[in-house]
Amino acid sequence: YVLCALPKMGFAGVNVTLPHKEHARRLVDRCDDAAVAIGAVNTIVIDTHGALAGRNTDAQGFWAHLVDASGRAEWSGARALLLGAGGAARAALWALRRAGVDVAIANRSGARAHALASEFAADAVAWPETPAALGGFDLLVNATSLGMAGQPPLAIDLSAMADTAVVYDLVYTPLATPLLHAAQARGLVAVDGLGMLIHQAAPAFAAWFGIVPAVDAAVRRHLMAALAP
């Protein structure tokens, strides 16, 4: 395994991305409480003994960016529809449930949606029924790979959503996804995935190097330039 070779190569740690976050949870030597509860690891820290410590900073990054970008700090009692059932979806779901948000899950695999909903005391919505169900939600989160470069777009009709709703796409390549274009066309608050990437990276960097980096507009501009085609 690549992970087993990292201590010998002098790594302080690594980030894990889709579709490996749930599998990484089973490969590390130990996990923090968040990673255990979420069932996924996106940050691995290599300790002084060469052991692999799994952490989940996705949930923190997801929530911090939602609050920043939406301008709304209090979400208790709100309703969210979460698309996806992988590692990023699990982190978002955990963060939302901790904040008192009622969550429903839709996934192209209905069995996975129902299993995840059962695990986190959430509801499940059949994938074909997603557009019609949107009217009852304050927040739509795309935690699938749909809309990512090289993947099909997430084609969903947002007309049923309330004018005050927020649409949050965790995809950041491209930064302006078809889903976010549709949200902006409807006049909804559109939240991209780059902020989550930045906010989850800050605690990971601190764990590796003992330095808490700034999360500001300059970092975002730098990343946007790096990700530009």
Score class of each variant (00 low, 15 high):
Ala165Lys: 10
Ser145Gly: 01
Ala69Ile: 13
Arg98Cys: 02
Val41Met: 14
Ala214Phe: 03
Arg30Asp: 04
Arg26Leu: 13
Ala132Met: 01
Lys21Val: 11
Leu66Cys: 01
His199Pro: 07
Asp33Ile: 00
Ala133Met: 14
His199Met: 07
Gly13Glu: 13
Ala183Val: 12
Leu146Val: 01
Ala121Gly: 01
Ala89Gln: 08
Ala34Val: 14
Ala126Trp: 10
Ser159Pro: 06
Ala91Pro: 04
Asp29Thr: 08
Arg108Lys: 07
Thr130Lys: 00
Leu158Val: 14
Val125Lys: 09
Ala95Gln: 05
Gly187Leu: 05
Leu170Ile: 14
Asp216Cys: 04
Ala155Tyr: 00
Gly110His: 11
Val41Trp: 14
Gly71Asn: 07
Cys31Leu: 09
Asp138Ser: 09
Asp58Glu: 01
Ala80Cys: 06
His65Arg: 00
Gly39Phe: 09
Ala132Cys: 00
Met9Lys: 14
Pro213Thr: 09
Leu140Ala: 04
Asp163Pro: 10
Val219Phe: 03
Arg90Met: 06
Val45Glu: 04
Glu129Val: 13
Asp157Cys: 05
Arg72Asn: 07
Ala214Asn: 11
Ala204Pro: 03
Asp47Pro: 11
Ala95Cys: 07
Leu179Trp: 10
Ala228His: 12
Asn142Lys: 13
Asp138Gln: 01
Phe137Val: 13
Val14Glu: 03
Ala35Phe: 10
Ala5Trp: 00
Ala85Arg: 14
Gly187Asp: 04
Gly61Val: 10
Ala165Gly: 07
Arg221Phe: 00
Gln200His: 01
Ala218His: 10
Ser118Val: 10
Leu82Pro: 02
His114Lys: 14
Leu197Phe: 05
Asn15Leu: 12
His199Cys: 01
Ala218Trp: 07
Ser70Gln: 11
Pro152Ser: 10
Val189Ser: 13
Ile211Ala: 07
Leu180Pro: 03
Ala155Met: 09
Gly87Lys: 14
Val167Asp: 08
Leu66Met: 09
Arg26Ala: 10
Asp192Cys: 00
Trp94Asp: 05
Asp102Phe: 05
Ala85Phe: 06
Ala149Trp: 11
Leu93His: 08
Ala5Asp: 15
Leu96Met: 03
Gln151Leu: 03
Val101Glu: 04
Trp94Gln: 02
Ala122His: 04
Pro128Met: 06
Ile211Lys: 12
Ser70Trp: 11
Gly147Thr: 12
Gly54Tyr: 06
Val16Pro: 00
Glu119Ser: 03
Val101His: 08
Leu188Ser: 07
Ala40Arg: 03
Lys21Ile: 12
Leu134Gly: 09
Ile44Glu: 01
Ala78Val: 12
Thr130Gly: 08
Ala206His: 15
Thr17Phe: 01
Thr173Gln: 15
Pro128Thr: 13
Thr177Gly: 09
Gly54Val: 09
Thr144Leu: 01
Gly110Ile: 10
Leu116Trp: 04
Cys4Lys: 15
Asp216Lys: 15
Arg220Lys: 13
Asp157Thr: 12
Ile44Cys: 03
Ala95Arg: 04
Ile211Val: 15
Pro178His: 02
Ala207Val: 10
Ser118Tyr: 00
Ala104Tyr: 08
Arg26Lys: 15
